[in-house]
Amino acid sequence: MPQFPEILCCFLHGQLYPANACDLQEIPFDECPFYDSKLCIYNSTSLTFFAPSDLSSIYSMCHEYIHSCSMWRNEGPCFDYVFVVTDPQAEGMRALDVTCVLCFFSFRYLQTVYPCAIIHRFNHVGDNPDEDMGMWIVCPSYLALCTHNIQNLAVIHVNMIYHAAHLIPIYSTHNINSRDVRLHCSYDMFHSFYVNKFADHHTFEIAF
């Protein structure tokens, strides 16, 4: 991730100066806080959340794990997808972004420990759910730099993660060779996805 130093400094700028959120394209890199010390890497994180509609849980508290590791059961990488809160004033998918978690890590800066995640952002396709399927459509976000498309990455605080997300590829009309699609690279074979609101009843209440 050659852009990691920039997105990390951008994250620090946003944490230290929340009233002046950092934009990589507007604030020069040399004006952001700089960090070049140790990082602690984690393969997963756990979320505990209050879900009053879940009558089967204890006191309406639920628990789930989100994985992001370079090798899952010696078969390939596993990068889970999550909903990230981007607009607390909105509702449903208009308040959330779908992202892929590429890494969990933490570091200490000025006596404060920051638990973070590196995410690949996804863009909403359209302003409303698909009329036929009733689900939102998203696609990976890229930055057009020079002649190459580079993943639109960001560092976020783990507190911005709201819930795990599940995506369904939007298939084309031609057949798929099952030998070319492996578990660890299946999402890389498609260009757009449905946000599966039927994954569980928590997601159904979120992704509307």
Score class of each variant (00 low, 15 high):
Phe29Ala: 14
Asp30Asn: 05
Asp30Trp: 04
Asp30Ile: 07
Cys32Pro: 00
Pro33Asn: 03
Pro33Lys: 09
Phe34Glu: 10
Phe34Ile: 14
Phe34Val: 14
Asp36Gln: 07
Asp36His: 07
Asp36Met: 08
Ser37Trp: 11
Ser37Tyr: 12
Ser37Pro: 00
Ser37Val: 04
Ser37Asp: 15
Lys38Ile: 13
Lys38Asp: 15
Leu39Cys: 05
Cys40Arg: 05
Ile41Asp: 02
Ile41Val: 14
Ile41Glu: 02
Ile41Met: 03
Tyr42Trp: 02
Asn43Tyr: 02
Asn43Pro: 06
Ser44Glu: 15
Ser44Asn: 08
Ser46Leu: 06
Ser46Tyr: 08
Ser46Val: 07
Ser46Ile: 12
Leu47Phe: 08
Thr48Gly: 12
Phe50Lys: 11
Phe50Arg: 10
Phe50Trp: 10
Ala51Leu: 10
Pro52Ile: 06
Ser53Phe: 07
Ser53Tyr: 14
Ser53His: 15
Asp54Lys: 14
Leu55Val: 05
Leu55Tyr: 04
Leu55Phe: 12
Leu55Asn: 09
Ser56Cys: 08
Ser56His: 05
Ser57Gln: 01
Ile58Lys: 05
Ile58Gln: 10
Tyr59Phe: 08
Tyr59Met: 13
Ser60Gly: 01
Met61Asp: 01
Met61Asn: 03
Met61Ile: 10
Met61Gln: 11
His63Asn: 12
His63Gly: 08
Glu64Trp: 05
Glu64Ile: 13
Glu64Phe: 03
Ile66Trp: 00
Ile66Leu: 03
His67Cys: 07
His67Thr: 01
His67Asn: 04
Ser68Tyr: 10
Ser68Asp: 02
Ser68Arg: 00
Cys69Phe: 09
Ser70Arg: 07
Ser70Met: 13
Met71Phe: 09
Met71His: 07
Arg73Ile: 02
Arg73Ser: 04
Asn74Ala: 08
Asn74Lys: 14
Glu75Phe: 01
Glu75Arg: 06
Pro77Phe: 03
Pro77Gln: 03
Pro77Glu: 08
Pro77Lys: 11
Pro77Met: 05
Pro77Ala: 12
Cys78Glu: 10
Cys78Thr: 11
Cys78Pro: 00
Phe79Ile: 04
Phe79Ser: 02
Asp80Asn: 15
Asp80Ile: 04
Asp80Glu: 15
Tyr81Leu: 12
Tyr81Cys: 12
Tyr81Gly: 05
Val82Gln: 02
Phe83Met: 10
Phe83Arg: 02
Phe83Asp: 08
Val84Lys: 07
Val84Leu: 09
Val85Thr: 15
Val85Cys: 15
Val85Glu: 15
Thr86Lys: 13
Asp87Gln: 07
Asp87Met: 04
Asp87Ala: 15
Asp87Lys: 14
Asp87His: 09
Pro88Phe: 06
Gln89Met: 13
Gln89Ser: 14
Gln89His: 14
Gln89Glu: 15
Gln89Ile: 10
Ala90Pro: 03
Ala90Cys: 11
Ala90Trp: 02
Ala90Ser: 11
Ala90Arg: 12
Glu91Val: 08
Glu91Cys: 11
Glu91Ile: 03
Glu91Asn: 09
Glu91Asp: 10
Gly92Lys: 01
Gly92Tyr: 00
Gly92Leu: 01
Met93Glu: 04
Met93Ile: 01
Met93Asn: 06
Arg94Tyr: 02
Arg94Ser: 15
Ala95Gln: 05
Leu96Thr: 12
Leu96Lys: 06
Leu96Tyr: 07
Leu96Glu: 06
Leu96Ile: 03
Asp97His: 06
Asp97Tyr: 00
